[in-house]
Amino acid sequence: MADRRRINGPPGATMAPVFEDDAGQPEIKNGKGRDRAPNVIRKTFLKTGVTPSASGSAYLEFEGSSKSGVSGLKLSCTVHGPRSLPRSSPFSPHIVLSAHVKYAPFATKQRRGYLRDPSERDLGTHLETALRGAIIADRWPKSGVDIIISIIEGDQDRETSKSQGDETWDMMNVLSGCITVASAALADAGIDCVDTVAGGVAALVQDAGEDSTPRIVVDPIPSDHEKVLGACCVAYLPTRDEVTNLWFKGDLPASDAGLYTQLVENGIQASRNANRVLVECLGEATS
C-alpha cells in the first residue's frame, strides 16, 4: 500500500552503525537481565489533561530497562467526544466507540508508515474490546467517541536486531499501556465508566543459562530474557473483579492447566498495580 500523498522516507531500512563493544563488556548480549522482582511492574508516569484541545487526554510513560539503549514506552492518548454522530450514520442506542492506535513513524526500529498497518488495527480492536466493557454505553445514545492513541516511543531494544520475534511480545506491553492510558483519558473526558480499567502483562520466560527453569514474571521486557514462552495481557476492572479483555499467546501444554491460570492471575496482579497508579493520578488531577 504505497502512500502517495506524502513524501516518504527512503524505502529501504537504514541501520545506524553499531560498533563492537569494548572487550570489558562482551557479556552485554546476555545483559543484566531483569533487575526487578518477578511481581513488580516498571515505574510508571501518568498524567491527565495534557492536550487542552481534546475533551480528555493522558500521557503515560514506562521507565526504560536498566540496560542502556533500551527506552521506555511513551504513549499519548486523546479522547474526542462524546459528540453527536454524523447525520448519515444509523441510529445507535449506545455510544459508538472507535479506537485508533498508531505508532509514530519513528517509534520503533523499523520505520512505520503513515497508514495504519494490520498490527496497529489489531491493537485498536483489542483496545476497543477492553474499553467497551468499562464504559456505560447506554448513557450516551446517538453519540460517538473517538479514542486516539499515538505511540511516541515503543520500548524496543535498539542495540540488537537479533530479537526479531520480540515484536509480537512488545505488542502486549504496548496494549497494556494503551488500555491504562485510554482509561485515564476517558476519566478525564468525564465519560461514565463502571470502573477504571488498567492493562497488565504477565509472561512465562526463560532466562539465559543452562539450568534456568521457566518462570512467570509480570511486565516483562522481552530483551531482558532469553526466550518468552508465552504471555498474556489482561484488562481488569478491580472493584468488580472482572476481566474485559484477555489476550494470550504462546505455547502451553494443555495438561498443565495451572500454568495458564497462574499467568492470568499474574496478569491481573500487574493490572492491579497499574490501576493503583491510575487511581492516584486521577486523584491528583481532581484535588
Partner: peptide, 18 residues
C-alpha cells in the same frame, strides 16, 4: 443494509438508515 464500513462495529440493533 446499514452503511457498512462507517464505524465498523458501531451502531446498534436499529436497522434502516439512509
Amino acid at each position: 443494509g446499514p452503511r457498512r464500513g462507517v464505524a465498523g462495529a458501531g451502531g446498534g440493533g436499529g436497522g434502516g438508515g439512509a
